[in-house]
Each structure stands twice: as C-alpha cells, then as structure tokens.
Amino acid sequence: MNIHMANGDQFRELIEAYALGALDPQERASLEAHLAAGCADCAKALDEARWLVSQLAFLAPDAKPSDMLRGRLLQTVRAEAHATKSAKTAAAIPFWMWGAVAALLLFTVYTSWETIQVRKAIDATNEQAKQEIAKRHELGEELAIAQREAIILTDPRSVKIAMPASSKDMPKLDAMWHAKMGIVVTGQKVPMPAGNRTLQLWLIPKTRGGKPIPSMMLRPDADGKFILLVANPPDVMDATKALAITEEPAGGSLQPTTKPIWVGAIS
C-alpha cells in the first residue's frame, strides 16, 4: 500500500466520527484540511455519514412540546411576517419622499418640455439650413447655366443661327450653337402660346426625308422674353440642316403637329 493510499484510508476512517462531531481537535483539523484539498471520495462519504448520523435523532424518547411554545412561536412569526409586508409597502415610497418624488416629477416634465422646445428649434434651424442649401444649390445651378449660356453666346467658335418668323407679326429669334456647350435660343416680345400650349424646338436633320428631332420646350415670360439652353442637343450640328420652333400641346410632341413658326438654317 503506498503512502498516498494509506493516508486516504486513514482519513476515510475518520469520516463517520467527524460527522458525529466526535473527532478530537487535531484529527478534526487534519481531516478538514484533507477535505478542503478536494478529496471527492471523502466528500461523498461525509455526505452519506451526515445523513446516517441524522437518523440517530430518532433514538430520542418520544416527547411533545407545550402548546404555549407553539403559540409563542406563531405570534413571533406572524409579527415578523406582518412587519416584512409593512416594510415592503412602506419602502415603496415613504410619506416624506412624496414631496421629493413630486419635485422630481415636475423637474422631469419641465425638462422634457424644454427638451421638446429645444428639439423644435433645432428642427426649425435644420429646415432653414436645408432651404438655404437648396437655394444655394439652385443658385449654383443657375450660375452654371448662366455661365454656359454666356460661353455659347460669346465664344467665337459658336455658330450664329438666325431664325426669322414665318409671319411678319412675329419677332425674329436668334440662336447660337457651340459644338461642345450646346444651343442657346433667345427671343423677345414673343407672344405666349394660348392656354397651356408650349413652344418646342426641333432639329431638322440634313438626311433626306429625315424626321424632325424633338428637343426642349419653352414658354416666354410675361414680357415675352425667353432664353432657352439646350446643353445636350439630340444631334450634332454637322448633321443638322436647320432649327425650327413650333407650337405644341403641353408636354410637347414626338413630331410637329403644327407648321413651324420660326426656322433657322444652319450655314
């Protein structure tokens, strides 16, 4: 038998007496140290021994406690149970705290209202900023358009296209076509089309029998002025014979539905 096993057996022999509480101090301390070290066998044996020792209680001669003991005990227990219940109820919100709770509630409501107001102000500011940005964007776009128009109108490489009217009552229009920047058509004292009808620009192709190519629509302002920019013409200048403008229904047409009011040949 090796020493380890001998020691294990030695401790095992002490288990029942330990459960009984009969070990002398030195043996008790030694066994407790052994148990603390984690001996599973001894721990299991001790559990069983404790149960076994508990059965010795039934050796005691029968005896019955007095009814007074029962009464005293239940009185104490009922009082403690009631005190626990009262304490739980009272602990919810003691009377003196109602003031503090009310103040906290008011503060919370005020803070919430203030937060809402601040949030509204922030939202309004954000909306304003958005509008400013949109305006700026619009202005930027307008500036870009204006710059393009200016280039088309002033660049020597642009081709000037006179667009006389078919009727003497109608003013003459002018057009400038820049091969890279697009077409600008300008007019003054141009009568407003009736109703919601619109004026529409066409590119008449050089190709024999080629159909007019639809382009942008325009409506003069109240003074009869307009400036139309076609940044990306549907065809190139070299393939185009003439520019024409007709009056069309609102939204334009795929093909001219009326005779051209203005026509400008591209030389």
Binding site: K64, L69, L73, L74, R78, A81
Partner: peptide, 22 residues
Amino acid sequence: RDVNAFEQLYDRHSRHVYALVL
C-alpha cells in the same frame, strides 16, 4: 413569508425536534 407554511412545518416536525433537544 407564508405563516401557514411555517405552521405546517412546525406541526409536522416539532415533536421530533423537541424530543431530540430534550
């Protein structure tokens, strides 16, 4: 904190507890 449960436990086991302690 069920007093009734306590009462039942007492009635079930007080005799043996008292006998042992006595």
